[in-house]
């Protein structure tokens, strides 16, 4: 099995593991980590596809797209983390379960 075929399957698995974490984990920080896993999976699939022909140099177009994608992905992560901080500050919650109240949760706190 050549590396590009192997890492294509790894990319699919990383994406699905990330999706599972995104859907099932209650803590927002872990959801963001899972979202990053999903984007790593997508990047890996593109780069593995670009490297499919071992006799010539790898396709530069997906490489350029992934470099752009990495910068976009850290922008999204930074913004998401800031929103988590704001949510935690204003509602004292760190999860997205609307039906679950922490024993210490109080709505009157600013």
């Amino acid at each position: 099995m050549t590396p590009d075929v192997l890492f294509k399957y790894v990319a699919v698995l990383l994406f699905v593991i990330g999706l599972y974490g995104m859907l099932s984990q209650p803590h927002m920080l872990r959801k963001i980590l899972a979202g990053n896993l999903m984007s790593v999976g997508v990047f890996l699939f593109m780069i593995a596809t670009a490297a499919r022909n071992a006799s010539i140099t790898a396709d530069p177009v997906p490489h350029a797209m992934v470099i752009t994608g990495i910068v976009v992905s850290i922008s999204v992560t930074a913004l998401a983390l800031m929103l988590v901080e704001r949510i935690q500050r204003s509602s004292k919650r760190i999860h997205l379960y609307w039906w679950f109240r922490h024993p210490h949760d109080r709505d009157d706190e600013p």
Binding site: F15, A50, R52, N53
Partner: peptide, 21 residues
């Protein structure tokens, strides 16, 4: 449910060809 079609896509995606190089 999503894993099966995605693995099929990975299996069927081209393994040769020069792409845009």
């Amino acid at each position: 449910a999503l894993l099966a079609p995605l693995l099929m896509v990975a299996a069927q995606s081209p393994t040769t060809g020069a792409g845009l190089t």
